[in-house]
């Protein structure tokens, strides 16, 4: 048992907290996150053009600053004269909505299974952990291909697939944490003092789960964004004419030699999004885990 009054430990804690300040890249990522979220939420207000609205007189026009620029279409237009910027922002909105829905499903499914596995030992735990091992062994993109080809690429099926994509990480984390916490002396102390199981779960177990789950949720978000845009890029995710960042890159591929802006705008947004989310995820993880800060 380490006493909290231990001066060395206290000093280390203060030092550790000092290291928690964000560096310049992390600060930029936070600003980017706010901007991207705002752009996604307010996409219908920000974009002057209908993302599906075609204009056959203004097809394949380049972005601002190039010859043949069509007034108002800042990032140019695609092969049907649709505004690339409007489509990209609506795509961003859809991609983020799908990623959040998928990450929440993963959190609920994985968290529940992990909780059950951590609390109930024996064959229940063995069975759940065998499922986790299987999920790790099978390349998930293949399962996603199979399910989407068979059940059709509706948004419902897509959200379900994205939700199943990362559940095993949550399950592992929650199970590990629950088992670790269950062995802690303060849980014994709480029980001795007369705390019921619900009280201990709420007061002592849950607060310990919040920070690893927030970290995992953030990292999962970026993985799901990549999975969704990859599936949409391959033509198996979001279906046209509805714009998603991945499908815009996939469909714009045919016009790359003459109109690269159709591909580059959504591609840039995807990379900005994954970089931002992963930098934030790494930052949160470093904050949450004292051991990692030593390196």
């Amino acid at each position: 048992m380490v006493s909290l009054a231990d001066p060395i430990l206290r000093m280390r804690r203060r030092k550790a907290r000092k290291g928690q300040g964000a560096d310049i890249i992390q600060k930029i990522a936070m600003v980017m996150a706010v901007l991207l979220a705002a752009a996604a939420i307010f996409a219908p207000l920000l974009t002057p053009f209908d993302p599906l609205g075609q204009s056959l007189l203004a097809r394949l026009r380049p972005p601002l600053g190039f010859e043949r620029y069509a007034a108002g279409h800042l990032a140019g237009t695609d092969e049907l004269g649709r505004d690339v910027l409007s489509r990209s922002l609506h795509g961003l909105r859809l991609t983020l909505a799908l990623a959040f829905a998928g990450a929440v499903i993963g959190l609920v499914v994985g968290g529940t299974l992990g909780l059950v596995a951590g609390l109930r030992r024996g064959w229940v735990e063995d069975g759940i952990m065998a499922l986790v091992d299987m999920q790790i062994a099978i390349p998930f993109t293949l399962v996603a291909l199979l399910v989407l080809a068979l059940m059709g690429s509706s948004l419902t099926v897509l959200v379900f697939v994205l939700g199943i994509a990362g559940w095993e990480q949550y399950a592992r984390i929650v199970r590990g944490e629950v088992r670790r916490i269950a062995a802690m002396p303060y849980l014994d102390a709480a029980r001795t003092a007369g705390a019921g199981p619900l009280y201990t779960a709420w007061r002592h177990v849950l607060p310990n789960l919040v920070s690893p789950l927030v970290v995992q949720f953030t990292l999962a978000l970026s993985n799901i964004v990549i999975l969704e845009s990859t599936l949409s890029f391959l033509g198996l995710g979001v279906q046209p004419p509805q714009p998603s960042l991945g499908s815009m890159v996939g469909l714009g591929r045919d016009y790359m030699p003459t109109a690269p802006w159709i591909v580059l705008t959504p591609a840039l947004l995807i990379v900005l999004l994954t970089f931002t989310v992963q930098i934030l995820g790494d930052w949160l993880r470093d904050r949450a885990d004292v051991r990692l800060r030593e390196r």
């Binding site: 970026s222 990549i226 845009s229 990859t230 890029f233 991945g246 890159v249 996939g250 591929r253 790359m256 030699p257 690269p260 591909v263 580059l264 591609a267 995807i270 990379v271 994954t274 970089f275 992963q278 790494d282």
Partner: peptide, 22 residues
């Protein structure tokens, strides 16, 4: 190493095709 994680492979491929082929 970080960039390798954050850039999806299809975007890496597309950017290479644009640059080195077209």
């Amino acid at each position: 190493a970080f960039a390798g994680y954050a850039v999806p492979s299809f975007i890496l491929a597309i950017v290479m095709v644009l640059t080195f082929s077209y």
